[in-house]
Computed example of a mutant assay.
Amino acid sequence: MYRYLLLLIVWCHTQPVSAQSPAPVKLITCEGKAQGTYYIVKYLATDTTSLQGAVDSIFQVIDQSLSLYRPGSLINQFNATGQVQLDTHMKAVVTKALLTSRATDGLFDITVKPLVDLWGFGVHKRAFTGVPPADSIKKALTYIGYRYLRIKGNQLLATRRGVQIDCNGIAQGYTVDVLGQLLTQRGIRNYLVDVGGELCASGHNARGESWGVGIERPTPGDTNYEPVQGMVRLPGKGIATSGNYRRFFDQGGTRFAHTIHPLTGEALHNHIISVTVMAKDCFTADAFDNPLILMGVEEGLLYIEQHPAYGLEAMYIYKAPDGTVKEACSKGFRQYMVY
């Protein structure tokens, strides 16, 4: 899923981390476009040699595995034949996806691709016709179900003909963490990685503080954005957001967003504008943001409270019945908020 999210990075000016630093520390930036969105990698180092080439190489390798836009990618091979030999990246993502599916009783399901395509949010755009007919949704649902996927060694198999997968709802979070691992392996301890609004951070910024992430609140019309309303610190955490305000269409006074409910076949059309999820890593945060937005505010916050092992915290931004925009947070989320 291509994210158009609510997150803005709060950048700091380059300066030495402390007066005792043995060598001048510089803030280095790598940036570009990949996976249908932007990316920015910022880190502190005494060696000013750019890692741009290494970063771009990671995107190329992961896209060859998981990109629906790249002909011949492993995911496209699976969707064409119902089987594929997995590489390290695809195996990690599919394994995590299946674990999340079981943890959320199927609210997260990468076999949702036929429904994503049917609603017009897929890679191959169809002529817009609005809400799909009920019989078309019913037919597509016969191909949906994570239980139709089986990992056997390093091979992924579909146990039902016609099952296809879409990993866009989790691949960006995975990529963020892989980039973080690259930096760690290069001896870099202070960094922030952002891929389309999905982020992970380690250490501190040039001011010696935990990296700051600003959260925007959309106006009631959902098309314009007010200035940053708050900021959270990201001390060694991952953060991801799912929302209904970028990829959507309106019909009959209802907004239908690109998040698809895999059990009902319906596009998201509740009162939630967004949910921002924090976890131990971006991979986990990205895996759970779609299920949490489908659960809704009350059920989602209860889920977080009842499943502490996943280490989730979340902030919901939603419309109240009177049309005002409000927020609701899990108990642990506020400790990371600065204002």
Rank of each mutant, 00 (worst) to 15 (best):
Leu6Ser: 10
Leu8Val: 02
Ile9Asp: 09
Gln15Thr: 03
Ala19Tyr: 05
Ser21Trp: 11
Pro24Ser: 05
Val25Ile: 11
Leu27Thr: 12
Tyr39Val: 00
Thr46Pro: 13
Ala54Asn: 12
Ala54Phe: 03
Val55Trp: 14
Ser67His: 01
Gly72Ser: 04
Gly72Tyr: 12
Gly72Ala: 12
Gln77Asp: 09
Ala80His: 15
Gly82Asn: 09
Val93Glu: 00
Val93Phe: 02
Val94Cys: 08
Lys96Pro: 00
Thr100Leu: 07
Arg102Cys: 07
Ala103Leu: 09
Lys113Thr: 08
Pro114Gln: 04
Gly122Gln: 10
Lys125Glu: 13
Arg126Glu: 07
Leu156Asp: 00
Leu157Phe: 11
Arg160Phe: 10
Arg161Cys: 15
Gly162Leu: 08
Val163Ser: 02
Ile165His: 04
Asn168Val: 02
Ile170Cys: 10
Gly173His: 00
Ile188Trp: 09
Val195Gln: 07
Glu198Gln: 14
Cys200Tyr: 08
Arg207Thr: 05
Trp211Val: 01
Glu216Ile: 07
Pro218Phe: 08
Pro220Gln: 12
Tyr225Asn: 10
Val228Glu: 12
Pro235Trp: 11
Gly238Lys: 05
Arg246Gly: 03
Arg247Gly: 05
Arg247Met: 08
Arg247Ser: 11
Phe249Thr: 04
Asp250Pro: 07
Gln251Asp: 07
Phe256Asn: 00
Ala267Val: 02
His269Pro: 06
Met278Tyr: 05
Lys280Tyr: 10
Leu294His: 07
Ala309Gly: 09
Ala309Lys: 13
Glu313Asn: 10
Ile317Pro: 00
Lys319Pro: 02
Thr324Val: 11
Phe333Ile: 06
Val338Met: 11
